[in-house]
Design a protein around this nucleic acid. Structure first.
Lengths: 365, 365
DNA sequence: GGTCGGTGCGCAATCGGTTGCTTTGCGGAG
DNA sequence: CTCCGCAAAGCAACCGATTGCGCACCGACC
């Protein structure tokens, strides 16, 4: 804001009115150099003298120059853009993933195109095509409905990463995780959860299903396996449709109420929370009448009444990791590693403990 | 999948390996026409004969042609891209807005670049610059930290829309809403909430602040005004710092507990829920000892214990509307109107009623 | 047979940066 | 005085799709 500046028109990135957008050429003219020099000056090319660089930059700032990404991308063959395909931005878990992904991408100078796939293969395929058209330098698919195989056919596998905070497309073989995948050790987390229950005297434990996907299967089996390994004789009961449909929590609750287990391990927090609400209507108290364990560690699980014991997964971290991996792959060409993140059992009020819990990870001091 | 096709290489959008990406020219060659004809054929230009159009399209499909958006944008001067600047994807309200926005944009053939501003002016300015570089055809700012004035300086106001589900940048003058803005009638919603409280015998009502922003002021004043208009003598008490900082719910709760009001109207659901949790630790029961009203209508408010009475705003709808308005402006050039959406009071368990509520909007049957 | 009119397509310019190669200019060495 | 070499900056091609303009061709009509 030096005084003495005349009323020279300064255009903004989006010129108001019919004013023409400022081009590199305008900057060049204003700095008395050619377009190529201006380009190199802005890129700090050592072949351009410092004085020239400075004056070009000054001119650019003065004119409020905004480069045209389309033109640059056309020539450069990259867009500094990442595609993020995610089922539902309203879901707390997916919101966390998206947030972490965007944050990390932004930190690395990438911007992200987000599209919601809504768990519909057709939409997901369309999204992937959009990413291709826009030349996304990398793509992350969060809990995709299409198979990893198809995904890898449609997107260069080198530039693709599959993030599965709550969705395992296939039951994994023991310890084998395909490359380019980020997921959590659901089985490990659930093992800790079931151990916690058994350690505290719970015996008649049931699992409540959520959808008929592979994740549900993984979680269900993890509960069963752990129960067996602990020598709990009672056969694991499961509630749920067993198919792809989500049962109405109220209906599910009354089914459960007919022969109350001692504890319920739920597919995820959302289900657990909804179930707690439904059970309350039936005057069934948690944890007095029944124990409750969720999965995901969504924020509200920490302030529900009772506060929910849950297996918390690092959803935000998964998003961040995905973006970071993609960027690294793009920039140094290193192949994406598979990552298996450990979840964390957070013991709260929805399960009673015989003695005070040895570890309480609840971040709410 | 006709038989007889030889093993011709079919490239995908992202060719695996070193295979070159398919260009329009390749399609043209394959269909024995020029590039210009191919372009026109794919655009269904009537000047191209039907037969040619068909054969070009067949070739494009066969080769799995994916147009280069950068090249197209460069020439066409538009990108079919919308920019969405939003504070935090993890927040349930913002997630709803983002979800609605993306969905509607997608329906109209636009894709959206999302960036989180984290309530920091510097990040928001950067985001706006990114949108400009990428040539976003329209921009929506959700609850921006920068002033509407500055926003309109940085983005062509014709292409900008301000969405304020939970953030009023300025206390509005009576009934005057600036153009290009979508917001909710907070005052009206809160009026209904306070009326509900007064109608049901609540008198000593307090407001709990959330941050020191203009929204907080609007809401606080709406409560006060309604209280006065109902002839409730008790002066409105408010809890909160009065400045930009959010108080710790536990701390807030103990302050409230020293002289318990009959009901608390909270800045938003998140605060109300956190407060309910904190009050529970102090053995204060809702609604027996104190009534609770939230604001926003986030999903979890419907299954909290007790279920929260709240002023629900149509966050998803605001997002959808923003995208739709932007698209309409872009396509037909109509100036954006201002929209004031009515919120909806949902009476649940956190406020006791003298008689059964006349209307119960709780969607959970 | 020549010209007119219309249909169907192709040539080449264009969008706005980036970059390989070349040109300019200047100081110092021969 | 000429030549060499290097530093600094410009020319022009290029990225891939779109589009104004013009050309070729064909049947029809005078």
């Amino acid at each position: 804001m030096r005084s003495g500046e005349s009323g020279r028109l300064v255009a903004s990135g989006y010129p108001a009115g019919p004013r023409r957008r400022i081009l590199l050429k305008d900057v060049a003219t204003s700095a008395n150099v050619s377009g190529s020099t201006a380009s190199r000056a802005l890129a700090d090319d050592p072949r351009i003298s410092l004085a020239t660089r400075l004056s070009v930059k000054a001119a650019a700032a003065e004119l409020n120059y905004v480069p045209n990404a389309a033109a640059r991308s056309l020539r450069m063959k990259h867009t500094r853009t990442l595609g993020l395909l995610i089922p539902d931005l309203r879901d707390p878990v997916h919101g966390q993933v998206a947030s972490g992904f965007e944050e990390e991408a932004r930190r690395s100078g990438y911007c992200v195109i987000m599209v919601a796939g809504e768990n519909e293969p057709a939409r997901e395929r369309l999204a992937l095509k959009i990413f291709a058209e826009h030349g996304a330098d990398g793509v992350a698919i969060v809990s995709g409905a299409i198979s990893p195989r198809e995904a890898r056919e449609r997107v260069d596998p080198e530039r693709l990463i599959l993030v599965q905070p709550d969705h395992h497309s296939l039951p994994r073989r023991e310890g084998v995780v395909p490359p380019g995948v980020i997921l959590t050790d659901d089985a490990g987390g659930l093992k800790a959860a079931v151990n916690h229950l058994v350690d505290n005297g719970y015996r008649r434990i049931a699992y409540v299903e959520g959808g008929g996907g592979a994740t549900n299967k993984v979680r269900s089996e993890a509960v069963a396996t752990t129960l067996r390994s602990r020598g709990v004789k009672t056969a694991l009961r499961t509630f749920g449709a067993g198919d792809d449909t989500w049962r109405d929590p109220t209906e599910l609750a009354s089914e459960i109420a007919t022969d109350l287990p001692e504890a319920l391990v739920c597919y995820d927090d959302k289900l657990a929370l909804a179930l707690m609400d439904a059970l309350r209507k039936l005057r069934i108290r948690v944890p007095e009448d029944i124990g409750m364990v969720g999965f995901d560690g969504i924020p509200f699980a920490a302030i529900s009444n009772p506060r929910l014991t849950t297996v918390a997964t690092p959803a935000g971290e998964m998003g961040r990791l995905a973006a970071a991996s993609l960027v690294r792959t793009i920039q140094v060409g290193a192949r994406l590693e598979a990552v298996l993140l450990p979840p964390d059992l957070i013991v709260r009020e929805s399960t009673r403990t015989l003695s005070p819990p040895t570890r309480n990870h609840d971040p709410r001091s």
